[in-house]
Nucleic acid binder design. Structure first.
Length: 587
RNA sequence: GCUGCUAUGGCUCAGUCGGUAGAGCACGUCCUUGGUAAGGACGAGGUCACCAGUUCAAGUCUGGUUAGCAGCUCCA
């Protein structure tokens, strides 16, 4: 693919930039189409995005309907068909301003004002349309072969909510029609796996107008939640953690000390108790700190690992709510570790090992991001350096690749974030490990060192799942509801053939229940096809046992496995032992 | 919170030009002797999210509220 740089040179496009250029050019073509249909349109920014492009445009009072978007797309296709050559030119500043003013592009004029004084201002033109842009772009509009407008939304000029809201028109663009179709298939697949849909089908959880954003767990969802929590308890007790539980409501004073009141009071739920303002906890750390302070500590106890499955409430904006992914109350699988500066590296190694174990358990691949000191941070340079190095050393010791995210740490310390990749390639941020020097000081935490002197410990905040609710959402989409046996709400479903004797089926059922298998007996008088369809597609049960005259006679089982769709014969005791062992080993 | 859209039985949806509601699935009853992705008949189930307004008449038109959807912003 040939591309045109702003100085007018034409060159072969580097492979890795092709899509980006294509998408950027598509944004221009869309702008041209919009301008043809809406001559008063005034354009702001129109970049390429991860899957396509958008253009932010001021349409005055004009509102676009879905039909209007289709018309714009049709006009874009027309422009592509016209196969307009794309040209580039550069103007000195005053002439650039004049050109944009003449064309009524007030956002572009404002943008010129933000550019350096000596900046050369480049333009790209195709037919009657001129856009101020640094390029590069394709050389002819016909190079754009596969695109689609997907939606419109609002977006602020320069992303600042004090500015005017513009209309953002989003689209996707690919190299070929085939790539576009693949993208659409993936979209459909994502929709099919949507945990909100599956949650309804499998009766995992619900929401209600009476508490928007606050999830209700139904019996099936509660099974998944409890299984995750019991797994979590097991590995934490094995890794030297103790578990506590702190109150949901504590007074305002605590949150002032922790710094949350100053930073986040608009997102905290409050209530008044005996004339005192109290807060519903948005985080567990201050509670943990109070537990630490409840008694004196020796250096011999450190690192002290205090874990808590804490239910936190945060007032998220209603537009941000999204199934279990973004809720107003959730359970953090939190832990706070109190330790000395020297212990940082070893402890981080230990935590990363734990998190790795958890993600591997679910078959997730992941990558790690290290976020360093932000601009408005608290604490000394020395502390920050020690902390950041502690994290780096640990990652290197583990031989983990990581991306550095400069300046994206919390104001109280650097952090490591874990992003996991699901079965269709999407990534989710789950685990995080944050170092904190601030809170131990704010609360005056102490331990006695080997010389009998009082010292202030360092604190690590960390989660593995992140939020149990969110993690259940991710697991549900990753497995498309077909959970591993140990998590499945119903593990075995016994399906009898209609009008057959159910005595044997009931015996098998009793044996499974005895072995602590979550079994269901479906002895309704329905055809076997009907029962199988329900067990597979709605309940997503890992094992289906079909029992009819044949099985009754041989006293054996016909086992249909959800994962493979294969049916095999198996003895009763053998099957019960196999499933029980899978559950025990959390397979 | 902002922009656009949506709200009709448990679920998924239809309902034309305003003339007081339909389907499929699920559910209940009955029939069906039926072997691996929906057997059949009948029945019950809805003050059309809520509050106002326009109208002889509102599921349908208008305004507001609430909730949801796609984005934006935000996510300690």
């Amino acid at each position: 693919m040939k591309i045109l740089y702003k100085d007018g040179t034409v060159a072969e496009c580097p492979q890795e930039e092709e899509l980006q250029v294509l998408r950027h050019s598509t944004a221009h073509v869309m702008a041209q189409a919009i301008k043809r249909l809406y001559p008063h349109a005034d354009f702001a920014f129109g970049p390429a995005t991860e899957k396509g492009f958008f253009y932010d445009v001021d349409l005055g009072d004009t509102k676009l309907t879905d039909e209007d978007l289709q018309k714009i797309e049709a006009e874009m296709k027309k422009i592509v068909k016209e196969n307009l050559p794309i040209k580039a030119f550069i103007l000195p500043r005053p002439e650039a301003i004049k050109l944009m003013e003449e064309r009524g592009e007030k956002y572009k004029v404002e943008h010129i004002g933000d550019l350096a004084d000596d900046a050369e201002i480049s333009f790209y033109q195709q037919g009657e349309y001129i856009d101020m842009c640094t390029g590069p772009h394709v050389t002819y509009t016909k190079a754009l072969k596969a695109f689609k407008i997907t939606q419109q939304s609002g977006a602020y000029w320069k992303n600042d909510k004090n500015n005017k809201m513009l209309t953002r028109i989003n689209g996707v663009a690919f190299r070929s029609q085939q790539e576009l179709e693949e993208f659409e298939k993936l979209q459909e697949e994502a929709e099919r796996r949507d945990h909100r849909r599956i949650g309804k089908e499998m009766k995992l959880f619900m929401f209600s107008d009476e508490g928007p954003g606050f999830p209700f767990f139904l019996p099936n969802g509660m099974i998944v939640k409890n299984e995750l929590m019991s797994y979590w308890r097991e590995i934490h007790s094995r890794n030297g953690y103790v578990e506590v539980s702190s109150p949901i409501i504590m007074n305002r004073h605590l949150w002032e000390t922790s710094g949350h009141w100053a930073h986040y009071k608009d997102n905290m739920y409050t209530t008044t108790i005996d004339d005192e303002i109290c807060c519903v906890k948005p985080m567990n750390c201050p509670g943990s700190v109070l537990i630490y302070k409840n008694q004196p500590h020796s250096y011999r106890e450190l690192p002290l690992r205090i874990a808590e499955m804490g239910l936190v409430h945060r007032h998220e904006l209603k537009g941000a709510l999204h199934g279990l992914f973004r809720v107003r109350c959730f359970t953090q699988d939190d832990a706070h570790i109190y330790l000395t500066r020297e212990q940082i590296t070893d402890e981080i190694v230990r935590i990363v090992g734990l998190i790795n174990e958890v993600y591997t358990k679910f078959g997730f691949d992941y990558f790690v991001e290290l976020s360093t000191r932000p601009e408005d941070s608290m604490g000394s340079d020395e502390d920050w350096e020690a902390a950041t190095n502690g994290l780096k050393n640990a990652l290197e010791k583990l031989g983990l690749d990581y991306i550095i995210n400069e300046g994206d740490g919390a104001f109280y310390g650097p952090k490591i974030d874990f992003h996991l990749r699901d079965s269709i390639g999407r990534t989710w941020q789950c685990g995080t490990i944050q170092l904190d020097f601030q809170m131990p000081q704010n609360f005056g935490l102490e331990y006695v060192d080997e010389n009998g002197e009082k010292k202030c410990p360092i604190m690590i905040h960390r989660v593995c799942f992140g939020s149990i609710e969110r993690f259940i959402g991710i697991l549900t989409e990753n497995f498309a509801g077909r959970y591993p046996v140990w998590l499945a709400p119903t593990q075995v479903k016994i399906l009898t053939l209609p009008n057959s004797d159910t005595t044997f089926a009931k015996e098998v059922y009793a044996k499974l229940v005895d072995a602590h298998v979550r079994a269901v007996l479906d002895d309704r008088n329905e055809t076997i096809g009907y029962k199988i369809r329900e067990a597979r597609q709605i309940d997503r049960v890992p094992y289906m046992l079909i029992i009819g005259a044949k099985e009754i006679e041989t006293r054996s089982l016909s086992v249909r496995e959800l994962a493979t769709d294969q049916t095999t014969a198996c003895g009763v005791d053998e099957f019960v032992a196999k499933v029980a062992s899978e559950i025990k080993n959390r397979k």
